[in-house]
Simulated assay, not measured.
Amino acid sequence: MNWRNALVLVAAAASLGAAALAAPLRAPVMVDDVAVSETRLPRKLSDFGFFSDPAAQVPAANVTPYRLNVPLYSDGADKLRFLYLPAGTQARSMGEDLLDLPVGAALIKTFAFGEGADRRLVETRVLLHRSDGWLALPYRWNDDQTDAALAVAGARIDLATPRGEAISYRIPNKNQCKECHGLNGAVVPIGPKGRNLSADWLGHMVGAGKLDTMDDGMDTMPLWESRDTMPASQMARAYLDVNCAHCHRPGATASNSGLDLRLEQRDAQAIGIMKRPVAAGRGSGNLLFDIVPGKPDQSILLHRMASPEPGVAMPELGKATVDQDGVDVVERWIAEMKPAA
């Protein structure tokens, strides 16, 4: 769901017809700033007031939906993303990098499986920007789909992916959130980078006074839906930036691998080309280099992406299945590279 569709839902909810107009008026749902900024660990998602209709994922009036051009793969889950900014504040553009969000801001991401009447909300993860830094909390939806409860210890849920694969879906515990969101010892957002947000959305935010400016000259990632028609190199680098670089970069949890998969990294060996593994262990599959130009079947990076085996599969967290679309894009990119002399 993109931000325009979400805004349509809000508009539809505001004009339900004569029957709805005859019903008693209710005060609009407003976000509880105390819950975001001060209440240590709110027990329920509803304590925040992020949604006017939680089951339908209709955001409160001061919560803005957004989408990423290239999303993080999570077993095929449909992810609905929202941004909350306290009244009187605005985000600050950092060009292609992450938006600089003020204290009191929140990022909300709901994971859902299924469609229509069969859609099931599974979890909502929130990132709260407090005075002492960012706090990541996971919430598990109840069977009635009316609210979600704090799952500090995480959870396991049996479900089927959109491809029909039966999996034990894992809601991360509070500490596991740090494995993907950790940078130089602190918890940070990883999703809303300027280059991974649409110009339309950024322009809307500027017009609404919620963003200070936008960089018209930045390098924007193409939509993931266009992966079959876009150059493989462009799509693969974008995919690795979104799905891998939050760990494989200096200062992050997998920095000991020596890989730096950020889009801005231009050094061939840093992104794995003819680079010997440092800490792959048995995950290397007895292969010698992270990426061998022109030879996907000899590349450790692709070997690990294509494996569902624990201890081999990459990423280690956040999925239980192979992202075949991602594998296909990276395989095509490596195959098209000019072989090393």
Results as ranks from 00 to 15, higher is better:
residue 72 L to M: 10
residue 58 V to T: 10
residue 9 L to G: 11
residue 256 N to I: 01
residue 215 D to S: 14
residue 308 P to W: 01
residue 238 A to E: 02
residue 142 N to F: 00
residue 279 A to L: 15
residue 193 K to D: 07
residue 256 N to K: 11
residue 320 A to Q: 14
residue 69 N to S: 14
residue 230 M to W: 08
residue 283 G to N: 09
residue 13 A to E: 14
residue 178 K to I: 12
residue 8 V to I: 15
residue 42 P to V: 05
residue 154 G to P: 14
residue 181 H to W: 04
residue 107 L to T: 03
residue 142 N to S: 04
residue 32 D to K: 15
residue 95 G to H: 09
residue 158 D to G: 15
residue 194 G to K: 04
residue 339 P to V: 02
residue 284 S to D: 13
residue 134 W to D: 00
residue 140 R to C: 02
residue 329 V to M: 06
residue 337 M to Q: 10
residue 240 L to Y: 06
residue 312 V to E: 03
residue 10 V to A: 11
residue 276 R to Q: 09
residue 155 A to I: 13
residue 280 A to R: 05
residue 335 A to P: 00
residue 65 P to T: 08
residue 89 T to N: 13
residue 310 P to N: 12
residue 66 Y to V: 07
residue 103 V to N: 05
residue 246 H to R: 13
residue 46 S to Y: 14
residue 116 G to D: 03
residue 39 T to S: 13
residue 14 A to R: 11
residue 47 D to T: 08
residue 81 R to W: 03
residue 330 V to I: 10
residue 134 W to N: 04
residue 66 Y to M: 08
residue 250 P to L: 06
residue 331 E to I: 03
residue 161 T to R: 07
residue 131 S to H: 04
residue 34 V to E: 12
residue 164 G to Y: 01
residue 171 I to P: 00
residue 268 A to C: 06
residue 264 E to R: 08
residue 275 K to V: 00
residue 144 D to N: 14
residue 164 G to H: 04
residue 49 G to W: 01
residue 81 R to A: 06
residue 231 P to Q: 05
residue 126 V to N: 09
residue 275 K to C: 00
residue 244 C to K: 01
residue 22 A to H: 13
residue 85 L to N: 05
residue 282 R to I: 13
residue 191 G to I: 01
residue 56 A to V: 05
residue 257 S to E: 02
residue 263 L to V: 12
residue 327 V to I: 02
residue 337 M to R: 08
residue 205 M to P: 09
residue 287 L to A: 09
residue 306 A to Y: 01
residue 246 H to P: 01
residue 225 E to I: 12
residue 65 P to S: 11
residue 7 L to I: 01
residue 47 D to Y: 14
residue 187 V to H: 06
residue 323 D to I: 04
residue 71 P to T: 00
residue 145 Q to Y: 06
residue 298 Q to C: 14
residue 228 D to C: 11
residue 309 E to H: 09
residue 222 P to R: 13
residue 18 A to C: 12
residue 327 V to A: 15
residue 338 K to R: 12
residue 317 L to Q: 15
residue 198 S to Q: 11
residue 340 A to W: 05
residue 253 T to S: 13
residue 46 S to L: 12
residue 1 M to P: 08
residue 124 T to Q: 10
residue 15 S to M: 08
residue 101 L to G: 04
residue 229 T to K: 13
residue 99 L to E: 03
residue 239 Y to M: 05
residue 196 N to P: 05
residue 179 E to G: 09
residue 94 M to K: 12
residue 146 T to H: 05
residue 69 N to K: 07
residue 45 L to I: 06
residue 4 R to M: 15
residue 168 S to L: 03
residue 58 V to G: 05
residue 137 L to G: 02
residue 267 D to R: 07
residue 15 S to V: 06
residue 144 D to W: 04
residue 252 A to N: 07
residue 238 A to H: 01
residue 96 E to A: 15
residue 186 A to E: 14
residue 50 F to W: 02
residue 315 P to S: 03
residue 253 T to N: 10
residue 237 R to G: 12
residue 68 L to G: 08
residue 222 P to C: 15
residue 289 F to K: 15
residue 55 A to G: 14
residue 37 S to K: 10
residue 319 K to P: 04
residue 199 A to D: 15
residue 288 L to I: 11
residue 245 A to T: 04
residue 181 H to T: 06
residue 51 F to A: 00
residue 105 A to M: 03
residue 269 Q to T: 10
residue 194 G to P: 09
residue 134 W to L: 01
residue 130 R to Y: 00
residue 54 P to V: 07
residue 13 A to D: 15
residue 13 A to Q: 08
residue 195 R to C: 11
